[in-house]
Design a protein around this nucleic acid. Structure first.
Lengths: 218, 218, 218, 218
DNA sequence: CGATAAACGAGACGGTACGTCTGGTCTTGTG
DNA sequence: CACAAGACCAGACGTACCGTCTCGTTTATCG
C-alpha cells in the first residue's frame, strides 16, 4: 500500500493557512510574473548564472518582493518549475505493472534528455552546497514519484512471484539511477537507443520479456 | 586488454612541453601552497562557497598567480583532489573477477560515503553549469575507472558464460549508478547495510553468489 | 508695539479651517502617539537617523497615517518639538529692558547647550537641503522670538539714548548669532563661562554695565 | 603669535606618508574623476540628496573605489571642496589690521552668499548628525582661518590700545557669527547692503571708523 | 657577470550582485 | 471616512568577489 507522502513546502516562507488580519493581500499577478520571468531566464542560462536581480528586472518587480516570499534562488526555480508542470511522468494503473513501469521510465528518461533534465541537474547541483535545496527537491519532486514506483514494483511481484527476492529499493535503484547518473556525469547519453534498450535489459534480468508491442510475454 | 586511457589535463593552462626560454621558473612551493590551501578550505566549506580570494589569502599567494595557472575554481579543486590521491579504488587482478568487482565497488562506496564523496558531489554540481568542469571530471576521474570495470566484467563473462547476454555498459550502470544517485539526491543513505547488501543483490541477479568469506561459490 | 507675527503652519497638510463633512474624525490619541513616539526616538537618535517607519512602529500606527498628516520627517519633529514646549524663553516686560535681554539670552543659551539645542541643530541641518524645513523653523520658532527681541532693544534705546546708532538688526545679530554658530560648528562651547561673560562683554560695548546682582548700573 | 594649526586630514583613510610596499599604485586620475564628479553633482543637488552611487556613476568609477579611500559622503565632498580651492579668503598682512579684517570678512561673506555658502551649509547640516563630519569641517576649514583672524585682532589691539578690553574670541564671534547664522537660518539675507554696512557698524562699536576709501581714520 | 624574461607579491581597479533598508504609495478589511 | 496592516516598486546602502591591471622585486637562464 502506498504510504501517503506529505508534499510539504519547506522553503517557501510563511503561507501558514491564512492569517489574513488586514493588510494588502499578496498580488497574484506579481507572483506569476516572478515565476514566469524565472522560467524565461532558465531557458537561456543555468541557475548558477541567474541572479535574483535579473529575475526582478525581467519580472518588473522589486528585489525585496522576491526576498519576502522566497529565501533562495533555488526555491524560486523549484516553484517556477512545479508551477508549470514541467516534469510530468504519470504512472498508469490500468495496465500490467511491468508495462506501466516501462512506460513510466521511458517517459522520465525522455524528459531528462531535454531541457527539463538540464534544469533538474542544475537544481541538484545547487543542492550539493545547500542541503535545504536538496531536501526541497526530494520532497517536492522525488518522494512522491519514488513511492509510486515502489508500489507498482510490489504489485508486479504479486503477479510474478518468480521475481528474485531482492529488496524493492534496490531494484528501483538499478532501474532508475542510471538516468540521474548520466545526467550528472555526462557519461553515456540519454539517447533513443539507451531509452529503448536499457529497461529491456533490466527486466530481462528479472525474467520479464516484452513482445514487439511492448506487451509483457507471460 | 585495457585500453590506455589518456589522462589529459584540459583545464590547466599552457604547460606545452616546455618552451622555457629564460625567465624565472614556476615555483613548486607556490603551487603546493595553493593546492593544500584549497584542500584545507574544502574541509570546512563547499566549493560553491569558497572563493579564489580565500584560497590566495590562505596560501599567502597573489590572486594573479592562481589565475595564471588555472582558469576556474573547479580546476584548482580537481587538481588539489587528485594531487592528494583522495579517491583511490584499486582493482585487484589476482582474484576472481566477481570478487574484484565486489571489493572495488565497496571501496568506492565507502569513500563516497564520507568527505571525498561530498567533494565529488560538489564538483559534479559545478559541472552542471559548466560543461568544461564536467568533462574534466570525466576525463580525470571517471573514464579510467569505468574502463577498468568494463574490462573486469568482460573477464567475468569468460569465466561464467551463463551470465545473461546484456550489454556490459548497462550492467556497470546498474551496479555503480546508485552510488552517484544517492550522493546527488541524498535519498537513500550510503551506509553499512547498503554497502553490504546492494552488490550481493545485484550479483544474485546474474546468478553469482558469495559465501560468508565473500568468495564466489562456483 | 510688537508686530503681530502670523504663526502659520506651512508644512502641515490640509487642516483647512474644518470642512468636516462626515466620516470618522481624526484620532487625537493617534496624533499624540505619533508625536510622543517621535520625541522618544529623538532622545537617543538624530533626526537624520530616525525613520518614518521607526516612528510608526514605536507609535503603533500605520505609516500611511503619518504621511496623511505630515509631509516630511522634519515636520513631525517640529510639531513634536513645539507640542512639548521644549524651548521656552520668556521675555520679561516688568524689568529694565537690558536686564530682560540678558535674562532672555542666558535662558536661550542654556537651553541650546543641552539636548534641545542638539535637536534644533538637527532641524537646521535638515533645513540645509530642504528650504521648506528651514522656512518652517523660522516661522514657528524664530520670527516670534526675534521680533520680541527687536522690540525690547528699541525700548532700551528709548531709555538709553547714548547707545550707538546702529541698526537694531545688527545689534541683535552680534548678540544672538554666536549661540547658533557655536551650535552648528561645535567650535567654542556653550558653557557656564561663555553664558556668564559673553553678554556682559557685548553690553559693555554699548556702554551698559551690570552690578553683581545683574542689575543695570545707570 | 599665530599658533601653528595642524591641518590634519582625519576622515581620509590611510595615506600615511607613503608605505608603498608593492601593489598597483593609486590612480591619480581616478581620484580626480571622483572629486570633480562630486563637484558637478553638488552644483545641482544638495549633499543630502547625492548618493555614492551617483558619484561613482558620474565618475565612471566603481563604488568600492570610493569606499576604499573615503568613509563617508561628507568626506568626499569636503575633499572635493578643498581640492578646488572653492573658498579662499586670504588675509592681507601688508595693510592696517582693521582694513585687513574688513576685507577678509567681506570676502568671506560674499562667498558665503553664493553656491559655496550653500555647500558649507549642507556640510554643517551633515555635521549635526555626524560629529566626525563636524570635526573634519572645523579642522580643515575653520581652525586655520579662525586662528589667523584672532591673530590680526591682537595686532589691531597693539596699534589701537583704546579698543575695549574684551576677549578676542568674543569679538571675533560678534563679527563673524552672523554670517553663519544667516546661512543656516535663512533669516536675514547676506546681500550687498549687509556686506557693506554690518562690519562698519561692528567696528564703530570698537571706535574704529573708515573713510570712503575704506581706509582707517586714525 | 650582466642582460633578459618570466614568476610572483601586493593591491588598485571597474564591475556586478548580494541581501537589507527606507521612502512613499497602494490596496485591503475593520470600526 | 480614518485607520492598521502590510504588500509593493524604486533605488541606495556598504560588502564581497570577480577577473584584470600595474607596479616593484626576485630568480632563474643565456649570451
Amino acid at each position: 500500500m502506498a504510504k501517503l507522502i506529505e508534499l510539504s513546502k519547506i522553503q517557501k516562507k510563511d503561507e501558514p493557512g491564512k492569517p489574513r488580519g488586514g493588510g494588502r493581500p499578496r498580488s497574484e499577478s506579481t507572483r506569476r510574473a516572478i515565476l514566469s520571468a524565472t522560467l524565461k531566464l532558465l531557458r537561456s542560462d543555468a541557475i548558477q548564472n541567474i541572479t535574483i536581480e535579473a529575475i526582478a528586472r525581467e519580472a518588473g518587480v522589486s528585489k525585496a518582493t522576491i526576498y519576502r516570499w522566497w529565501d533562495s534562488k533555488a526555491s524560486v526555480v523549484i516553484d517556477a518549475f512545479i508551477e508549470d508542470h514541467i516534469i510530468h511522468t504519470p504512472m498508469r494503473h490500468d495496465i500490467h505493472p511491468a508495462e506501466a513501469l516501462l512506460a513510466h521510465w521511458r517517459s522520465l528518461a525522455e524528459q531528462y534528455a531535454g531541457w527539463p533534465g538540464t534544469v533538474v541537474g542544475q537544481i541538484l547541483g545547487e543542492g550539493q552546497a545547500d542541503p535545504a535545496v536538496q531536501r526541497e527537491f526530494r520532497e517536492r519532486f522525488y518522494y512522491g514519484r519514488r513511492a509510486i514506483v515502489n508500489e507498482v514494483f510490489d504489485q508486479l511481484r504479486k503477479i510474478r512471484p518468480d521475481i528474485p527476492d531482492i529488496e524493492t529499493e534496490h531494484l528501483v535503484d538499478m532501474l532508475y539511477s542510471t538516468v540521474y547518473r548520466r545526467l550528472m556525469l555526462g557519461y553515456g547519453l540519454i539517447d533513443k537507443r539507451f531509452i529503448r534498450e536499457f529497461p529491456i535489459d533490466f527486466f530481462s534480468l528479472l525474467g520479464i520479456e516484452f513482445d514487439d508491442n511492448e506487451k509483457v510475454i507471460d
